[in-house]
Measured scan of single mutants.
Amino acid sequence: MATGGRRGAAAAPLLVAVAALLLGAAGHLYPGEVCPGMDIRNNLTRLHELENCSVIEGHLQILLMFKTRPEDFRDLSFPKLIMITDYLLLFRVYGLESLKDLFPNLTVIRGSRLFFNYALVIFEMVHLKELGLYNLMNITRGSVRIEKNNELCYLATIDWSRILDSVEDNYIVLNKDDNEECGDICPGTAKGKTNCPATVINGQFVERCWTHSHCQKVCPTICKSHGCTAEGLCCHSECLGNCSQPDDPTKCVACRNFYLDGRCVETCPPPYYHFQDWRCVNFSFCQDLHHKCKNSRRQGCHQYVIHNNKCIPECPSGYTMNSSNLLCTPCLGPCPKVCHLLEGEKTIDSVTSAQELRGCTVINGSLIINIRGGNNLAAELEANLGLIEEISGYLKIRRSYALVSLSFFRKLRLIRGETLEIGNYSFYALDNQNLRQLWDWSKHNLTITQGKLFFHYNPKLCLSEIHKMEEVSGTKGRQERNDIALKTNGDQASCENELLKFSYIRTSFDKI
């Protein structure tokens, strides 16, 4: 039985969820670079991206490699990797027998973001014989899940209580170790020597080791999670996991709180800001991140802002960003909400898709409305799209047979046209069989910064309504002859009103 693990408890099935942008060198404390989270699957090609990484700022997932063999891993080693800020997950990587050479110096898994409450997941690794993470000293947050690894031993010899604050939620089941077939031998045991430290858990006094050649490092209890030197002297209180010299914040392997210019500090002093819960960055760093993602459509890219001495992905609820200094300031009234469309555009074809934009005031991208039916549609669209004030790209209304009016965009005031449909149009209306009105132009103002209007096959939309939009939106004169079809717009509506004058002759039985 794995020490510190839980057996036999019912657990939810383990679901495996399925960018080499360097964020800056980590400095003297770390020998390499800070790398983003990685999802490495199918083959070993991307694994080489770990070569210079000291910190993975995010998670590391290595999974679904069915053609790899043990010899493929023999020359692979990433000794610079010290810390993973989120979680480490391995799933069905064939041929991998140990992690001792792959990650010989991995010391800390912070667990800032977890995989279903777990910071370390080893699942269905069919050839893994031992973990071998002999320098792993601290899992700051989260638990361990090690399950269905039929060859995995050296679990009962690990004292997880020396690595985690609590072992109650560890789930370590259905491994070879369960069948008591392992016969784990710690260093020196074969020669009758006791080389590794022994600890007591559940009444068992057991030597602690990761492999037959690597003991588990056990520091004096007084050192807590700070770690200790090879001689057993406690590291500085700002260290986490390990250090090369005692009581020196510049000799830590990793930091308990924050890293700044080669030393570990309790908090980031001005003019620095907390970033990702582990390091200090200056304003320029946060500003660069903001600008890199301002026009990016890459998933996970955030326009970072500053709030409460932190550089964070977005302002919290009730705050909006001051564009001059990136500071989050309290909103006066309802907060603006910028919604970034991942692929640059979004099609609204149902109430469900409209709900995804609920509360958005600025759309960074283009909207395509293609709704053919739905219950209580006008009210639903207004509830979900009615706060949109600005669209950076274009607005396209296409084959939306259920629409009679666009009044559900009740606050839309600006279409920038930074991206144009077919390279020309910022407003595009095609084949809307029941569209009769755009907006009530006596109450609604709309500016279209650039781009043209396109109207074709809107049989109940009168040309007068379209011409009014040209005047109000500032697009009059931009359109070419064929942009607004004269014969297919309003051709099934009563669009022309003329005053009919009647004269009559009164007659009676005795007068003409």
Rank of each mutant, 00 (worst) to 15 (best):
G188D: 13
P79A: 14
C315R: 01
C182G: 01
I82M: 10
I139H: 00
K129Q: 13
C182M: 01
P336T: 15
C35Y: 00
N202C: 07
I172G: 01
C239A: 00
P336E: 14
S296T: 14
C228Q: 01
P197N: 00
H59G: 09
R256I: 09
P336A: 05
H212W: 13
G111R: 00
G37S: 08
G203W: 02
L164V: 14
G132A: 10
I306G: 14
L63R: 01
M137D: 04
K67C: 06
G183Q: 07
P36F: 14
I56T: 01
E314F: 01
R74L: 03
D277G: 10
K148M: 09
R263M: 07
L289V: 14
M125Y: 00
R298E: 08
L152K: 00
Q276W: 05
N257M: 03
K100H: 01
K193N: 07
S213K: 13
L88I: 02
T140H: 05
S161R: 03
C280P: 03
Q287E: 03
L50S: 02
L164M: 06
C335A: 09
L102G: 04
L136W: 00
H214A: 08
L327W: 14
A156N: 15
N150V: 12
C215R: 04
Q245G: 15
L63Q: 14
N179Q: 08
M83C: 05
E207N: 07
K191G: 12
R69S: 04
L81D: 01
V144E: 00
W278R: 03
Y259M: 08
C243A: 00
I56F: 00
S98H: 02
N295K: 14
T194N: 11
V93T: 14
Y134E: 04
L99Y: 02
E33M: 11
C228V: 02
H48E: 11
E51V: 13
C286M: 01
L89T: 05
S112I: 12
F116I: 01
R162S: 07
K193I: 06
E180K: 10
T189Q: 13
D39N: 04
C182R: 01
C239I: 01
R141P: 00
E97A: 11
R110T: 12
Q303E: 09
C235S: 00
I82H: 12
N322S: 07
E314P: 14
G142T: 00
